[in-house]
Simulated assay, not measured.
Amino acid sequence: MHRLGLALLAALAGASLSAQPTSPEVSPPSPHLRNPRRVEGELVVTFSNVAPLSGRALHEANLAAGLSADKPPELHVWSSQIVERFAQRDIEILEVTPATETEFDDPINGNRILHWDLTGRLVSGETITLRRRFRATLWETAFDVDPALVQPSDPDSALHRRFTQSEPLIECEDAEIRRLAAEITSGETNAYLRAERLFRWVCDHLTYIYPPGQRGALPTLARGNGDCGEYSFLFIALCRAAGIPARLVAGFSFTPESTGYHVWAEFHVPPYGWLPADASRADDASGEHDLAGLFAHLPNDRLIASAGVNLPLEPAPAWANPRNSDLSGTGTTGFMQLYTEAGSGFTAQRHTARRLLSTQPLGPR
């Protein structure tokens, strides 16, 4: 994959999120960013009590994982770097330890992926700690969308083609999902208002449950429940089936009260660009849905780790597959929050930590 400098990646990511097609008749409104706060955070992955296997134990573990019996122990870890996003700016990377073996860019989604080959650290009793520390300015996103200004998506554009296609987890070509999207949006031609109908439908018809069952839009539709990922997969699939580009965003709540994992969606409407939509948080048990705060709006409590699904991993070991690793396919992972692992031939205790070290409101801007 073509390698870019970090500064160039940030520029590309910013362009993909803010530079939108316009018509001669309409000047695109500027999306609003407000209520910024400066945060310092730390993301940690630890493998403790490492114990490489050998002899019969190694052979049995390898065969159970679909590997050759004598394959030696191996460990690879990937993580998505904190980079510039539309509402996530002024990034400072303060620490990445140990140093990565490789880094590569996923320019379609604006991601930068870090890779560690930790095979040489698989020593009995070893503790392996991956630590990243950073600063970022997080903004509240507030798009005041005027439906009269919304333009059709260009079906020939690379963005439209990429983010309306079917793929694992987002089964938008399924006949039932296509039928349902057409039924929900019947009679409405405005893309923003069509997306709003789909958002309301997902909130009305899903029940939050954790842990979820099988992941993906189709299993979620069949069950009628899921977590934040399932709400997002189904909303994205319905949008794509309706011809509205949409994608997943993965990261964390990042406040003094919570640094928990979270995912949500974005849908693309010219001339505004990518708009956030957090269906699971908007779905209130009372039946009221927070459209004002979580559809085309998002508070400044989110830290984005990555965008998109079925993300590429480089270099991906030829032996790694969903049966024996976090990979969802050949050289891909479903989505990435803290880390993705491909390991074999050892045991260890795995611990993760997401720490907000400081937060400082910067005042209205």
Rank of each mutant, 00 (worst) to 15 (best):
V77S: 04
W78H: 03
W78Q: 00
W78V: 01
S79N: 02
S79R: 11
S80Y: 01
S80V: 05
S80F: 01
Q81L: 12
I82L: 10
R85I: 05
F86V: 01
Q88C: 01
R89F: 04
R89T: 11
R89P: 02
I91S: 04
I93A: 10
I93F: 12
I93K: 13
L94M: 02
L94R: 05
E95C: 12
V96W: 08
V96S: 11
A99F: 03
A99G: 07
A99I: 07
T100V: 15
E101H: 14
T102H: 14
T102N: 14
E103S: 12
E103V: 08
D105N: 13
D105K: 04
D105P: 05
D106A: 02
P107R: 05
P107A: 06
P107E: 06
P107W: 07
I108E: 15
I108V: 15
I108L: 15
N109H: 15
N109Y: 13
G110R: 00
G110A: 03
N111W: 09
R112E: 00
R112D: 01
I113P: 00
I113M: 15
L114G: 02
L114E: 08
H115K: 01
W116V: 04
D117W: 04
T119A: 05
T119Y: 03
G120D: 12
G120S: 13
G120N: 11
G120M: 09
L122A: 06
V123K: 13
V123R: 13
V123Q: 09
S124C: 10
S124D: 13
G125Q: 03
E126N: 12
E126R: 12
T127P: 04
T129E: 15
L130Y: 06
R131L: 05
R131G: 06
R131D: 00
R131S: 06
R135H: 08
R135M: 11
R135I: 12
R135W: 03
